[in-house]
């Protein structure tokens, strides 16, 4: 069990009580492979018997649609955009992440406040201002930062993926380059610089994401093992030849697992 710990001003009306779940963050710039690795970790954790919730930026019930509409119009002011993201984050934190952690889930989040902070700062937001807003964020159990060696490599990956350059991922709103490629490279370089700045501030665990997917996945698993108990789920031995009707108590989650293993 772990006490709720916030980066700054805690959420109002939230009971500071220990929770059994784990909060694991996968961070990194666009195109680095975050969603692939979230999916791989999820399958792996579920086969080990853990319930997993995966979430990510702009996926909230409250703000997802509004953000999508606003982004498609390209009329979103810079401050407005940052606060819309913060609203989305708060909604997911209060209505998805915290309830899941209390229920003993492992929460895998594709990006957390660090991407939001980097994007805001690159767009001229005051670094302390944006950090104070995200002071409501829970300190995660692990922050796994997928880092790629060069932005050019990132661009190549985006091209190979076949989805092409997106207006916002390329930072076209910033007017940094004449075309999507130039803008993408310039924008992602600025983001990388912000991420590198946050590495120590927030104790990121850095994973070299320039390697093949399999090796990155192995590295991620090693780091997850440090916070999640991954011994094989021991099943009750059948006494004699009779197949045992294992009395599995209803229990959800990380600490709950111990209860099930004690069944006769």
């Amino acid at each position: 069990m772990k006490e709720l710990k916030f980066y700054g001003t805690a959420l109002p009306n939230v009971e500071i009580e220990p929770y059994p779940g784990k909060l694991i963050v996968i961070e990194g710039t666009d195109g680095v492979g975050r969603s692939t690795h979230v999916a791989l970790l999820r399958t792996w954790l579920e086969s080990a018997g853990y319930a997993v919730l995966d979430t990510g930026m702009t996926r909230s019930v409250l703000a997802e649609r509004g953000i999508k509409d606003a982004r498609s119009g390209h009329t979103l002011g810079r401050l407005t955009m940052q606060l819309y993201y913060a609203t989305d984050f708060a909604d997911r934190l209060e209505n998805e992440i915290l309830p899941a952690l209390r229920a003993g889930f492992i929460v895998l989040t594709d990006r957390y406040i660090y991407s939001a902070i980097a994007r805001a700062v690159v767009r001229g937001a005051d670094a302390n201002w944006i950090r104070s807003i995200y002071g409501i964020a829970l300190v995660p159990d692990a922050i796994l930062y997928l880092r790629i060696k060069s932005v050019e490599e990132l661009a190549a990956r985006v091209l190979v993926s076949g989805r092409g350059f997106d207006y916002w991922e390329s930072g076209m709103d910033l007017g940094l380059g004449n075309d999507y490629y130039d803008s993408f490279v310039a924008y992602q370089k600025l983001l990388l610089k912000e991420f590198d700045r946050m590495k120590t501030e927030y104790s990121f665990q850095v994973i070299d994401a320039s390697r093949p997917v399999k090796r990155v996945a192995t590295a991620l698993r090693q780091l997850v093992k440090k916070v999640v108990d991954l011994d094989p789920l021991p099943l009750a031995e059948p006494p004699g030849k009779e197949p045992a009707k294992a009395e599995v108590k209803e229990s959800a989650g990380v600490d709950g697992r111990a209860a099930a293993t004690k069944a006769p």
């Binding site: 009306n13 019930v61 407005t80 708060a90 909604d91 209060e94």
Partner: peptide, 25 residues
């Protein structure tokens, strides 16, 4: 959000701040 009662004090505050930021800009 009002119709479906989705707000918490924090999201109520942040969404109104978003609205205000747009007005400001």
């Amino acid at each position: 959000a009002k119709k479906r009662r989705l707000f918490t004090p924090t999201t109520f505050s942040l969404l109104h701040a978003t609205d205000f930021a747009d007005r400001t800009e």
